[in-house]
């Protein structure tokens, strides 16, 4: 177990270096620079700007300068927002993106596992078809449609919830969390249904039934441990996706999270901001994948045997 942990962390370092280096050079290939604007500035002003941000140095020098900063946690100044460092902006947006992802995940897990398990237990009945149809809808309806629909119903027609904001008006965290959580709830429901169906048909469940255990303890104590393994493996990519993919929900609901910076940085050619957020999200993806792999190892004896 410890071996796995050390090995994975050691692999993560070169992966991050490669990600950072490729991003550094790829963004320079994209046409247009951070200071190109509709209103062209004189060549002299452009020269002054490039000098102010060290963009006039040879590319390899800029690369080594940047990388040596990253090692000590300095992601440089944002080109788009003078007076702001990339680290500060990540630090400001991250807690909000995390909070949103956390609520969404709670909703996704609670709703997904409950309806998935229910569907597996009541296979081929209304209680199977109905939640699974909803799940299919959740997978198919994108968040950019789901968000505005929820806003129209609860925010504008019923006037019970704010239509946007985060921590500004009471109840404003509810709709974004549901919007983001719903899509993942749908995946989790389908995964847990599949996993549970497989386990429920196995011999040890029949043995447990033969021993006279109650249906409730069969499901919760025996079936769910194995049946939910696919959900646990899905958790790593899901958390990473929730963090990196919150851009749409953050935009619809006017949430000051990291996702908006991430996407807007690319449009603005804010080189340091693109790099900072890319490196950061890569580290997050690696970290959460590692966590979910470790969780699977803890839960599944068979996986441990294959180490």
């Amino acid at each position: 177990m410890l071996n796995v942990l050390i090995r994975r962390i050691l692999i993560a370092i070169p992966v991050l270096i490669v990600v950072a280096s490729l991003t550094f050079f790829f963004i320079r290939l994209a046409p247009g620079g951070p200071f190109d604007a509709d209103k062209v500035v004189s060549p002299q002003v452009m020269k002054n700007l490039n000098a102010a941000y060290n963009l006039d140095a040879p590319l390899h020098e800029q690369y080594f300068d940047y990388m040596s900063g990253v090692v000590v946690g300095d992601f440089g100044p944002s080109f788009r927002y003078p007076g702001r460092s990339v680290s500060e902006m990540i630090y400001t947006g991250l807690p909000i993106t995390f909070e949103l992802a956390f609520y969404a995940l709670m909703i996704a897990v609670a709703l997904g596992i409950f309806s998935g398990v229910l569907a597996a237990l009541k296979r081929n009945t209304f209680l199977d078809y109905f939640p699974m149809a909803i799940a299919m809808l959740g997978i198919c309806v994108p968040t950019f449609l789901m968000g505005p629909i929820l806003v129209l119903v609860f925010g504008i027609n019923l006037e019970v919830l704010p239509v946007s904001g985060w921590d500004t008006l009471s109840g404003d965290k509810l709709l974004p969390s549901i919007t983001l959580g719903f899509a993942y709830a749908a995946y989790i429901a389908r995964l847990s249904r599949g996993g549970m169906l497989e386990v429920l048909g196995q011999d040890f469940i029949r043995t447990a039934r033969a021993k006279g255990l109650s249906e409730f303890s069969i499901v919760t104590r025996h079936a769910m441990q194995g049946g939910l393994l696919p959900v646990v493996s899905f958790m790593g990519p899901a958390i990473a996706g929730l963090l990196g993919g919150s851009f749409v929900v953050e935009t619809i609901f006017q949430i000051p999270g990291l996702g908006r910076f991430y996407v807007e940085a690319a449009f603005n050619r804010d080189y340091t901001m693109i790099l900072g957020t890319t490196i950061f999200f890569s580290a997050m993806i690696i970290f959460f994948n590692l966590l979910s792999d470790l969780a699977v190892l803890l839960l599944n004896p068979r996986a441990r045997e294959n180490l």
Partner: peptide
């Protein structure tokens, strides 16, 4: 939760 949101 929704009713709580109706507060203000």
């Amino acid at each position: 939760a929704i009713l709580y949101g109706c507060g203000s």
